[in-house]
Nucleic acid binder design. Structure first.
Lengths: 210, 210
DNA sequence: GTCTATATTTCGATAGAC
DNA sequence: GTCTATCGAAATATAGAC
C-alpha cells in the first residue's frame, strides 16, 4: 500500500496529480482541499484522478508518504557538514543546517499536515517521525560518537546527548512555526550559540584547551 | 470578536453547545466534525446552535479561544511547586509537572487542533502560544530568577535559561505525541534527570556543594 | 428560545462518449 | 486514458410552528 501500488496506473498525468496534491494538501490541509480544485491545479479532469487513485483518502496517503520519503533524502544531506572542525564550530554548523531544514516552508507544511491528520491516518505519524527526526538524530549521533572517540567529548550516551543538543537547538521555534508565528530571524544565531554553550558545558571534555 | 461576542445570546444551552464543541472539535478536528453530530452531542437542535453562533467557523473560533484561556489557568497552577527545595530537586519537580501538563490528552488535543487550523484561523496560533507556553516560560523564569538571587545559579539570562530547560525537558516528546506515537512512559523520569543534569552543568553555581 | 422539517450547497465519486 | 456531464450523499444553514 505504498505510493506506487496506490497509483493504479502510473503515467505522466499521475505525476501531475501527485504534484498538485502535494501543493494543495500541504497548503490547505486535507479537509479544506476538494477534488475540483485538485483537478484544476493538476490540469486534468476529476475522472482522471479517479482513474489513478481510488479515493481522496488514497491520494492523500500516497502524497504524504511520498513527501515523507523525500524528506529522508533532504535530511540525509549535510551529514558531513561537520568534518574536521573544532567541536563548537562543528556544532554551530550542524545547528544552522538543522534549523534551516526545520524552518523550511515545505517541511513545516508537511509536518503540519501530518499532525493534523494523524488521527485519521495514524501510520503517517510513524512514517514522518522515522523519516525526518529519526534521520537527523542518527546523523548527529554518529558525529558525536566520532567526536567522543577523538576525545572531544566526555564518555556519555551519545544518542541522548544528540537528543539534548537537538532539543536545545529547536527550543520553542518548532512550536511557534507550527502555530504560524515564527520568531524574528535575528534571534536564531544567538540561540544557536547558547545551545552549543550549554551542550559543551555538560558534554565537552574538561581537559580540552578552551 | 471573543467567545462572548461570538455568542449572540448567552444561556444554558449555549454552554452545552460550547462544551460539546470542545469535545468534538478537539477529538476529531474541525473538518471531521459536522453540525448534526454537534447538535446531538450537545443535546440540542441544530437550529439552536445557529441561534447562538453565526456559523460553524464562528463556533469553532469561540471554542478554541475559550479553551486557550482555560489553559492559562491550568498552567498557572503549580507555579509554587518548587518552594524551599534544593536546586536539582526543585527542577525535577518542575520537570514532572511540565511534562504531565504537556502530555495530558486535553492539551495535546487542543494543540493539535490549533496547529491543524492555524492556516484557516491564523489568530489562534498566537492566542495559544501566549497562553500555555508563554505562561509556563514566565513561571519558570520567575523561579530561576529567585534561585539566581539566592546564589544557586550563576549570573545569567534567566529567561533564556528557562527556555533551554524547558526545551531539554520537552525533547522530542512533544513532536512524538503530536504525531500520535508517544514514547513509553518509563523513559520519562530518566529523561528528566538528564535534562536537570545538563541544565545544572551549564547554570548551576560552581561553588555549591555537590 | 427551541424544536422539526426542509432548503441549498458543496463535494466525492461515476457513467458514458471519444 | 482522458474528458464532459452528472449523480447522490452529506453537510451547512434556514423557515416556520410552538
Amino acid at each position: 500500500m505504498d505510493a506506487v501500488s496506490a497509483c493504479k496506473n502510473p503515467s505522466k498525468k499521475a505525476e501531475q496529480v501527485l504534484d498538485a496534491a502535494r501543493r494543495l494538501f500541504v497548503e490547505r490541509g486535507f479537509g479544506a482541499t476538494n477534488m475540483d480544485a485538485l483537478a484544476a491545479a493538476a490540469g486534468v479532469s476529476k475522472a482522471t484522478i479517479y482513474a489513478h487513485y481510488d479515493s481522496k483518502e488514497a491520494l492523500f496517503a500516497a502524497t504524504a508518504r511520498r513527501e515523507c520519503r523525500r524528506l529522508v533524502v533532504r535530511m540525509a544531506i549535510g551529514e558531513d557538514v561537520a568534518e574536521h572542525r573544532a567541536l563548537d564550530t562543528a556544532l554551530t554548523h550542524i545547528g544552522r543546517a538543522f534549523l534551516d531544514a526545520l524552518m523550511s516552508p515545505e517541511i513545516v507544511g508537511l509536518l503540519r499536515m501530518v499532525i493534523a491528520e494523524s488521527t485519521r491516518f495514524p501510520e503517517l505519524g510513524q512514517i514522518y517521525y522515522d523519516s525526518a527526526p529519526g534521520q537527523t538524530l542518527t546523523s548527529v549521533t554518529c558525529y558525536l560518537e566520532r567526536a567522543r572517540r577523538e576525545g572531544l567529548l566526555i564518555d556519555c550516551d551519545t544518542r541522548r546527548a544528540a537528543e539534548q543538543f537537538l532539543s536545545l537547538l529547536r527550543g520553542d521555534l518548532h512550536l511557534r512555526i507550527l502555530l504560524g508565528h515564527p520568531p524574528p530571524r535575528a534571534e536564531r544565531d544567538p540561540a544557536i550559540d547558547e545551545a552549543v554553550a550549554t551542550f559543551v558545558a555538560r558534554y565537552g571534555a574538561r581537559a580540552s584547551a578552551s
